[in-house]
Amino acid sequence: MSRNLNDLHPYVKHLAEKFIAECKNHGIEVLIYCTYRSKEEQNKLYAQGRSKSGTVVTNARGGYSYHNYKLAFDCVPIMGSKAQWGRADLYEKMGAIGKSIGLEWGGDFKSIKDRPHFQWDGGFTLKQLRQGLYPADPRQKTKSEFEIAIDKLVEKGVINSPNYWINNETYKTEYVQTLIKRVVKKIR
């Protein structure tokens, strides 16, 4: 089990850092104690309270937790250097902060209320993640077909700079974009 933020999906790491900063702004120090969890580690946790001694802490087997895909983290509020596991009021504040920045909060789960848990699914279900699909970092801008066509014109030396074409509203009309795409197809 990891507690390293670098083991998270890059966007979840960004959200975790933002979460920590926002909690601090609200007077809550937060310790993230679990980020990535392998499927084997998840299965051990799942066995707890079932085939192994202890209290049931998860309903998720390996492959059925967002931790297994680096899309979740667990945390605890800290006060006076001590973990505040039982402070529902602090978890409620943390839950509101997490949701305000785009995280899903385990305190809203229907089966087991998992107040320390926060996740970002990137629009993917666990079934899709198990099938090998994975969310992109939404901070990474994807280029439009038009921008890709302009880049190709620059590469081929037809124009000398993409900025004039991409940033000029006159050339963003559908007619001009279609024309530029046709030119690019011809020079490939």
Rank of each mutant, 00 (worst) to 15 (best):
S53L: 13
Y91C: 03
R130V: 04
A88L: 08
Y66R: 04
W120L: 03
S100L: 04
A60V: 03
K82G: 13
Y69I: 03
P135I: 05
V57N: 10
P77H: 08
C34T: 15
F109Y: 13
N68R: 02
E92R: 12
G95P: 01
W105A: 00
T142Y: 06
K44W: 05
I112S: 06
I101E: 02
Y134P: 00
S65G: 10
T142D: 09
W105T: 00
F109K: 10
P138V: 02
S100G: 06
A60P: 02
Y46F: 11
H117W: 03
K141H: 09
G80F: 13
S51A: 12
F73C: 06
M94K: 01
A83F: 07
E92F: 08
Y64V: 05
R50A: 05
A83E: 12
Y46P: 00
Y64A: 12
T35D: 06
L45C: 14
Q42E: 15
E145C: 05
C34V: 14
K143A: 09
Q42P: 07
R139T: 09
Y66W: 10
E40L: 15
A72N: 04
Y36V: 06
D74M: 01
T58N: 12
C75I: 00
E145I: 02
D151E: 11
V57K: 14
T142C: 09
G95N: 02
G107R: 00
P116F: 02
G95R: 00
H26I: 10
R37L: 09
I78P: 04
E104S: 14
M79V: 13
G106V: 03
Q84D: 07
L31Y: 11
L126P: 00
G63P: 04
Q131A: 15
K44E: 13
I112M: 10
E145P: 05
D114Y: 10
A96Q: 12
M94W: 00
G27D: 11
T55N: 13
K110S: 08
A96M: 12
Y66K: 04
K141F: 06
L71T: 01
L45E: 11
I28A: 03
Y46A: 04
P135C: 08
G80W: 09
C34P: 10
L90V: 01
F73G: 05
G98W: 00
S100E: 05
A96S: 13
A96E: 12
I150P: 00
L153D: 07
G63F: 01
K93M: 08
N43E: 14
N68M: 02
V30A: 07
R130N: 14
K82A: 14
P135E: 05
K127G: 10
R37Q: 10
V56W: 11
Y134L: 01
A96T: 09
Y36E: 07
L153Q: 06
E40I: 14
E29A: 11
D137Y: 04
I78F: 07
Y64C: 11
I150R: 01
N43H: 12
K44M: 11
N59D: 12
K52F: 15
L133T: 03
Q84S: 08
G54Y: 08
K93G: 01
I101K: 02
